[in-house]
Design a protein around this nucleic acid. Structure first.
Lengths: 350, 350
DNA sequence: GTTAGCACTCTTTACCCCCGAGTGCTAATT
DNA sequence: AATTAGCACTCGGGGGTAAAGAGTGCTAAC
């Protein structure tokens, strides 16, 4: 187990540190002692501040960009700021109004609500928002449907209890007729309806296979196609908002950084990894804490949304390390609570 | 009707112009007379070249970036190059191999094939590829299905003859039972199956409404929900490949340009407009011909793919005006032909 | 008609210098 | 003992100048 050295900062150091972070978050410019001394909340001279800053730097909370520059928060500094100095921000009327517009229209599809949340969130923050869509993994099967398109192909459709629909085309075995198909579908629904999607594959081969054998000759081909359809959602869907917002951040004037980040966003796999392994509640990962070179100058704040106690998905904001943590956290909290309550009302009694 | 002034260039001017364009496409650097005079295919002095270039500039085919710079092709120049000087390029073995990998796996879904095409195309060209997915507009309805999820909500699913599936949740009228629903579904399929999606809305209100009235009390609410489901695909889907490839092009070192372009790509509406109004075959739009400020330094080459004679969708490459036109055109031709033939085999007899 | 030669233009790069913002340290002040 | 004024020093950025390099247009010679 790691032992954390608890650093005790004096009140004055704390004050200076906080003002440095707040100022840097706003301006993106290194903060010097003169600038600080002019702030209302600071009543001592620049020399004093310089001394304190030297100490704060020694402790690793702030750093210089070059020998005679002002200071910027280090990653450790942001971590401390986030852990100890964050005061929850009240959302203003405009924010609240916009968030509630997500649920203004009568929308029933989970996915659409989630997508709209991503959009609104990115508009409110000017950062990039990412939403990991509702996990279908633990949905339960509502119905399987097979619709033949012509003699050779048919389309298999599965519907889950949350209204999620997956479909896939497959090749029909030769010499199968409509009656056979109907029997197959009946057996499938009989045996599998109500079962969690995760368990379907297993059940399919263990319980259904035997039954199918009695009814159609070329059953194995069909079985594989159905198994294919069932296992489609390997990853849950990702929704993005404001993918290009990062381009407006001064830290991304360097095209190379942009390219790295955008590439990761496009690939989705990396993002998926970042989002999926978070616990419930608010999670904050700062810079290299994300273990991802493209995220060097970025922070990721995630929150989960749920139906009742069942965690459904994750909603996140990706921004520069110099991010408005307080505001973003408030927003995420607010949206995820709203999302959870609306979704619960809609789907609780499924 | 516009009268086009036909400009006759001497063979030598043509040669010089072609070499300028080819060189600039490769290097992205303005081409000077000295550089040209060193080329194998050019056997006259730099002074002669300078004279010819002055003429070419007067005619508007090339331009200078500043008074004493080399020349770059103008938009008019690219247009001429594309219209008169393009020699079809043979694809190499590697290209052909990669293209054919699109169809290597047995995939039946139109969308997946199309998506894979976009990916491969962007990898082969290092530009951004865009595919306008199969138009569902003129698909014909295969089947409508309604699956109740609980007492209040149900999900309506429509399946088209090409295997496209759309679904939408809706609120069930109160006091409707499973038998009623089945009747509704039967009526719908009876009346609408085989009809083009476009005509469904009309038919629904004109023919089906009367029938429904006899069977369920609250039929109008239901009717509207079904109408909603049917009209979902307002725009055909867009698929992208290599969205970030543009970032590697030297003309996009300027962050502002990148932002403009990326924003347009993200919004999709603009892209949709650019793609949807093209005729069959290869279309080339250079720079401002696209009528879109974000496309100032870009060219768009589109090709259509089809089943039989029915145009299905569009496949396109978005790159800088300094684009490898010849190669891209060959690739697009090749892929669209392959796409068309494979899709025809799969769906001809639908 | 072609080309060698030349003066001229413009960009790029480097270099220098100076200014401003900031620092750390020391000595004086409270 | 803590705070602050003062000062020497450092570094980045902006402006200016100079030289190099690539290119042009024009003229005169071939």
């Amino acid at each position: 187990m790691l032992t954390e050295v608890i650093t005790v900062l004096t009140d004055r150091q704390l004050l200076i540190f906080q003002v440095i972070v707040d100022d840097f978050i706003q301006t993106a410019q290194p903060v010097g002692s003169r600038t600080l001394s002019k702030k209302e909340e600071i009543s001592f001279s620049s020399a004093t501040i310089r001394n304190e800053m030297a100490d704060l730097e020694e402790l690793g909370f702030i750093e210089k960009t070059h020998t005679s520059s002002g200071r910027i928060p280090s990653e450790k500094g942001y971590r401390y700021y986030v852990d100890h100095l964050l005061s929850p921000q009240k959302l203003n009327q405009h924010d609240i109004h916009k968030v509630q517009s997500i649920f203004a229209e009568r929308i029933y599809e989970l996915e659409k609500i989630v997508q709209k949340s991503a959009k609104i969130l990115s508009e409110l923050t000017n950062y990039t928002s990412i939403v990991l869509g509702p996990a279908v993994r633990d949905n339960k099967l509502k119905r399987i449907q097979i619709v033949p398109l012509n003699k050779e192909t048919a389309i298999a459709i599965i519907i889950t209890d949350t209204g999620h629909v997956e479909n896939r085309m497959f090749h029909l075995p030769e010499n199968i007729d409509a009656g056979d198909l109907e029997k197959v579908v009946n057996i499938l629904n009989d045996r599998l309806a109500g079962a969690p999607l995760e368990s379907l594959n297993n059940k399919l081969y263990k319980e259904v296979a035997v039954l199918l054998r009695h009814h159609i000759s070329n059953y194995d081909l069909m079985l594989n196609s159905i198994a294919d359809t069932i296992k489609i959602p390997a990853y849950d869907k990702l929704f993005f908002g404001g993918k290009t917002n990062m381009l407006s951040q001064p830290e991304f004037h360097d095209i190379e950084k942009v390219k790295n980040l955008m590439n990761m966003i496009e690939q989705e796999k990396g993002i998926y990894d970042l989002l999926s392994k978070n616990k419930s509640g608010i999670n904050i990962k700062i810079g290299r804490e994300n273990n991802n070179s493209a995220m060097e100058n970025c922070s990721l704040i995630t929150a989960s949304y749920s139906i009742g106690t069942e965690q459904l998905g994750t909603i996140a904001i990706l921004g520069p390390t110099r991010m408005e943590y307080s505001r973003v956290i408030s927003l995420l909290n607010y949206i995820s609570a709203d999302l959870s309550s609306v979704l619960s009302k809609l789907y609780q009694n499924r």
